[in-house]
Amino acid sequence: MSPKEIIKDFHNSNIIKDLDLVEKFYHKDCELHWNSTKYFRILKYNDILEYYKSISDSYVSLRNEISVILVEDNFVTVRHTVYARTIENQDEEIPLVHYITIWEIKDGKLFRGYQISQLADDDAIEANSFSEIKV
Rank of each mutant, 00 (worst) to 15 (best):
5 E>T: 04
9 D>R: 15
12 N>R: 07
21 L>V: 10
21 L>W: 07
22 V>F: 04
23 E>P: 11
23 E>H: 12
23 E>N: 07
24 K>G: 09
27 H>F: 02
28 K>A: 03
29 D>K: 04
31 E>W: 02
31 E>T: 07
31 E>P: 09
32 L>M: 05
34 W>K: 13
34 W>C: 10
35 N>F: 05
39 Y>I: 04
39 Y>Q: 14
41 R>W: 01
42 I>L: 03
44 K>L: 07
44 K>G: 09
51 Y>C: 00
51 Y>A: 00
52 Y>F: 04
54 S>R: 00
56 S>W: 04
59 Y>R: 12
60 V>P: 07
63 R>T: 10
63 R>P: 08
63 R>N: 09
64 N>C: 13
65 E>H: 08
65 E>P: 11
66 I>N: 13
66 I>C: 12
67 S>R: 14
69 I>W: 06
69 I>Y: 03
72 E>A: 09
72 E>F: 01
73 D>N: 15
74 N>P: 08
74 N>F: 00
75 F>M: 14
76 V>K: 08
78 V>R: 08
81 T>W: 00
82 V>L: 14
84 A>G: 13
86 T>E: 02
87 I>F: 03
88 E>W: 01
90 Q>D: 08
92 E>P: 09
94 I>D: 11
95 P>M: 00
99 Y>H: 14
99 Y>T: 13
103 W>I: 01
105 I>P: 13
105 I>F: 04
106 K>A: 08
107 D>G: 08
108 G>C: 06
108 G>E: 13
109 K>Q: 09
112 R>E: 12
112 R>S: 11
114 Y>T: 12
115 Q>A: 15
117 S>Q: 11
119 L>M: 09
122 D>F: 03
126 E>T: 11
127 A>L: 10
131 S>Y: 02
132 E>P: 06
133 I>P: 08
134 K>G: 11
